[in-house]
Amino acid sequence: MRNTVLIPTYRRPIDLSCCLLAIQAQTKPATQVIVVVRNTDQETWKFLQEFDPGNLPLEIVTVFVPGVVAALNTGLSVVRGDIVSITDDDAAPHPTWLAKISHRFDNNNSIVAVGGRDCIYQNNQLEDGSSNIVGKVQWFGRVIGNHHLGVGGIREVDVLKGVNMSFRSSAISDLRFDKRMHGTGAQVHFELAFCLALKKSGWKLVYDPQIKVNHYPAKRFDEDKRQQFHQLAFINAVHNETLGLLEYFSPVQNIVFITWAVFVGTRDALGLIQWLRLLPSQGTLATRKWFASIEGRWLGYCTWKQWDKHQKIFNVVQIPTRKALSSHKVNINE
């Protein structure tokens, strides 16, 4: 199978250099490497003019709109590989990354997406821990990530993480990341709606913790600064998560989800109970997070409610169903 690697980048040339060197070192060479660069990103353009790609089949694509969604959609429009593997510019895939990804797709035609573990390094220290529960959306709306902590064997999941996710090109040829995602850079939870649309169409998404990238979270140049509370970034993240879940759930589940979100919530999207729990330790910060959470939930609901389904660019009806492209029964342990 032909492998395309898609890398959105913005103002992180040193990180991008490490990423490209890791792609060069793959045991299974990529047949296409797409780097999507903002038109105003002079730092990256200068780096790429001086970078020697060697035998790397590098293609530079320009994007004129801020945000990871626009960058990825621009990249997807020129993909030629049978598999498109997406990673971040601040990640370095392990040498067997593409080989293991191809093996998973080769073994099962019902699998549309494959993800793996991102080994996060903070201050040159690997973030330790392990989890057997990865990439799941619980019936009432709580999203469990843990992609950086996954251990064990391959398993079916609901959502993958943007730094390490691959898709069967034929199944997503008419699908694009949702332009309704809020934010001007990272657009947190952009993967959620994309993955859940595939899940809703009957496809299988799997996670294999042996498919690894090293992830060195770098500086962001938007409102989301990592590990710091920023009201707009918080609102945007909650909006995006809310929109993705409302699109995926049934009408009854949506009622359950909204009720749970308002009255319970999580540490990243506070409901009433979470606010009361964090209030003693965080004080006014907990209150600011709670107000931002409520606003994000409301805005996400409004976006979902007001959207004209007949004019969606992100339209799940266009996704080929599993039955349309394959009659092969899934066995995630193959």
Rank of each mutant, 00 (worst) to 15 (best):
I120Q: 08
G81I: 05
Q282W: 15
T303N: 09
V5C: 08
P251I: 06
H230M: 11
T87Q: 10
I34K: 01
L160D: 06
I133D: 13
G81S: 10
G67F: 15
V37M: 13
G244E: 11
A171N: 01
H215V: 12
R104G: 07
H239M: 01
E247F: 03
F177G: 03
G54K: 15
L205N: 07
K312L: 01
A193Q: 09
E156C: 05
L198W: 05
R322S: 07
A25T: 12
A218K: 09
I111R: 03
I235L: 07
M165L: 13
V256Y: 08
T44E: 14
S130E: 15
W307S: 15
K136C: 12
L160Y: 04
V84F: 00
D118E: 10
W139G: 01
K219H: 11
Q32Y: 14
A71E: 06
W203G: 00
N109G: 13
L285W: 09
G244H: 10
A171F: 00
L56I: 08
R168S: 08
T31Q: 08
Q306M: 09
K46L: 13
T259F: 07
W203I: 00
N146H: 15
I273T: 14
K312P: 01
C119Y: 05
N146E: 11
N240M: 05
K46Y: 13
S250M: 11
D118V: 02
L299G: 10
V316D: 00
R226E: 09
G283T: 13
V36Q: 03
D222L: 08
Q122R: 15
V35P: 02
E50A: 15
G296C: 02
V61N: 06
L48Q: 09
G244A: 12
V33T: 09
R226I: 10
I101T: 01
I235W: 06
Q231D: 07
D82G: 03
